[in-house]
Structure formats: structure tokens, C-alpha cells
């Protein structure tokens, strides 16, 4: 058991290594010569060479690659080409705002998706089931940023219940107020995923032999559904929710843009538009690291709660 967890945790390292290599080589492909990217095409040969030497670009690519990895481990992603500031500082400053959004999005998604999915699963083929399935399908098909625009139109522009700019500030409740609309737009989409997952998982479990046995033994049907079936049905749901954190994170890139909310997503989009390669590199690495770590944790959690998983 402990060995299993240790092994899973250790597997984060090669995964991050693959991600890091990918990001490094992809960015190098994109930016060509970083010295030219900084100084511009009209720079003199002399100035370019000086900068290359300064940045260590005159050394073999593999040495640079090694150094990039070494620095990345220490949390050093270099400096932004545009502002000259430390990439790590900018990224870590933006990250909490994004995490806040993801957290509330996940919470809203779960609070809505979980009960809906359970009811739809237990009373399948009922009107409730039918309607919630259609709504979930709609949610699944709607880009989160479009839902965001609709919410913005309705609640911020027409009703003026919520602020238009979601730059969170102030205390806990004030921040919640600023975060609500963007979190809702992510959360509703998330709820669609969760609802469908819970429902299908529950239906599958309800067909299993031991549930039939429970019915046969005369256990009250409601107790069968909610007690026996639910617990088993929720196990795969946890995994899926973990996996969708990645999707949710990616969704923030667009949601932050729609709601003019500071955060990692907008930082990344800005960096892409400004071709600020070190910043793009740092932003992607953070996204990657978070997704990899969350996936691993979910895997472990799954292993812990599901006794049928073998730890070999």
C-alpha cells in the first residue's frame, strides 16, 4: 500500500520530465533564437553575440536543456522578454486567482452535478432524468466561455447583480462575490460532466449482481440505491472529477478573458500574444505540473478507496 503510493508519487518525476522537455523543445522551435526575439531582427551581430553569451545560448543545446531543467526544479523560469521581470514571480502571483476560480467552479459543479446525477440515476427514465440529461448534454456542448458571456449579459449587464470585471479583491465574501459569475460558468459545465458520470456509473452498479441480491433479500429499495449502490458508483466519479480538473483549468484561460479576471490563463494568453517565450514556458509548466500532480493524487485516492485495485 505505502509502496504503491510511493511509486505513484515517484512517477510524477518522469512525467514532469517529459512535460519539461516537451515545453523546452517546443518553445525553442517557436522562438528560434531567443537573442533575436529580445533584440529584434535589426540588432547588430555584435550585440546578438554578446547577449547570446550572456544568456548562455552559445553553448550546446543539450547543456542549455540541462540547465533549463535544473533551473525549473529550483522554480526559476528566467525573465519575461517584455517586462524583464522574473517569470516565476509573475506566474505565482497570478496562480492563486486561478486556483480560486477552479475551486469554486469545482464546488458549484459538484453541488449541482452530484445530486442531479444521483436522482437521475435512481429514477432513470423519469421526467427528471430526461430533462436533466438534455440540460447536461447542452452544457457539454456549450463552450464555457459562451456560457460566461450569456451569464455576463444576463446578470452583470441587464440585472446588474454582479460586477462586470471579476478582479477579486477584499475579504473572503467580497472575493466570492467577484468570483461567482465566472465560477458559475465553469461550474455549470462541470456539473454536466459530473451529472452524466454519476448517473451512468450508478446505472451500471444498479445492474450488478450484489445489488440484485440485496433486492432479493428484501432490503428496502431506497436503501439499496442510496446505500449500497451509491458508494460503489461514486468511486469512478472521483477519478473523472480529478481528470476534469485539467479541463477546468484550461477553461479558465477563456473564462478569465471573458470576465477580465486576472489569473494564470490571462497571463498565458497575453504572453502568447506578446510572444513572450519564457513566460509562455513558465505558464505551461505550471499548468502541466498542477495537472500531473492532481492526476496522480486522484489515482492514489482511487487506489485507496477502491479495494479491487491491485497495488502491483
Amino acid at each position: 500500500m505505502t509502496a504503491y503510493i510511493a511509486r505513484r508519487l515517484l512517477s510524477i518525476i518522469p512525467t514532469l520530465l517529459i512535460v519539461g522537455s516537451l515545453v523546452f523543445f517546443v518553445m525553442r522551435m517557436a522562438s528560434g533564437d531567443p537573442a533575436v526575439a529580445i533584440l529584434g531582427a535589426s540588432a547588430t551581430q555584435e550585440a546578438l553575440e554578446r547577449l547570446r553569451a550572456e544568456m548562455g545560448l552559445d553553448r550546446p543545446l543539450l547543456v542549455q536543456y540541462g540547465e533549463f531543467l535544473l533551473n525549473a526544479v529550483r522554480g526559476d523560469f528566467g525573465r519575461s522578454l517584455i517586462t524583464g521581470r522574473s517569470v516565476a514571480e509573475q506566474v505565482f502571483r497570478a496562480f492563486p486567482d486561478t486556483l480560486e476560480l477552479v475551486f469554486w467552479g469545482m464546488l458549484i459543479g459538484t453541488v449541482i452535478g452530484l445530486p442531479t446525477g444521483i436522482i437521475a440515476g435512481v429514477r432513470h427514465n423519469s421526467i427528471f432524468d430526461y430533462i436533466s440529461r438534455i440540460v447536461a448534454l447542452l452544457g457539454l456542448s456549450m463552450p464555457a466561455f459562451y456560457l460566461g458571456i450569456l451569464l455576463l449579459l444576463a446578470f452583470a449587464i441587464h440585472l446588474q447583480w454582479f460586477p462586470v470585471i471579476s478582479a477579486p479583491r477584499g475579504g473572503f465574501f467580497e472575493r466570492m462575490y467577484y468570483t461567482f459569475l465566472p465560477a458559475l460558468s465553469l461550474g455549470l459545465i462541470q456539473a454536466s460532466f459530473i451529472m452524466r458520470m454519476v448517473r451512468s456509473s450508478l446505472l451500471e452498479v444498479l445492474q450488478e449482481d450484489y445489488i440484485r441480491t440485496a433486492h432479493a433479500k428484501g432490503v428496502h429499495p431506497r436503501r439499496v440505491s442510496y446505500h449500497h449502490a451509491l458508494r460503489n458508483a461514486l468511486i469512478p466519479v472521483i477519478t473523472v472529477m480529478g481528470l476534469y480538473i485539467g479541463t477546468l483549468l484550461a477553461g479558465t484561460v477563456l473564462t478569465e478573458t471573458v470576465f477580465n479576471r486576472p489569473g494564470l490563463g490571462r497571463l498565458l494568453v497575453g504572453a502568447i500574444q506578446q510572444r513572450d517565450y519564457p513566460l509562455i514556458q513558465g505558464g505551461l509548466m505550471i499548468y502541466a505540473a498542477v495537472i500531473v500532480v492532481v492526476n496522480t493524487l486522484v489515482d492514489i485516492l482511487y487506489g485507496v478507496v477502491d479495494p479491487t485495485i491491485r497495488y502491483d
Binding site: G170, G171, F172, F173, E174, R231, V304, V305, P307
Partner: peptide, 28 residues
């Protein structure tokens, strides 16, 4: 196994309350 998990979960509301309290302090 599950019961062990559950006892961990019981700590969650407490942790959440502490965090919430700390954050509300910022308002003032």
C-alpha cells in the same frame, strides 16, 4: 480503509472554518 478515509474527511470542515476565518479578517 473507507472508515479511515472518513475520519480524515471529518477534519475538513474544521480546516475550512479556519481558512474562512482567516480570510474574513482581511475584510476589516
Amino acid at each position: 480503509m473507507l472508515s479511515k478515509m472518513r475520519s480524515h474527511f471529518r477534519l475538513l470542515p474544521l480546516a475550512a472554518a479556519v481558512v474562512a476565518l482567516a480570510l474574513t479578517a482581511f475584510v476589516f
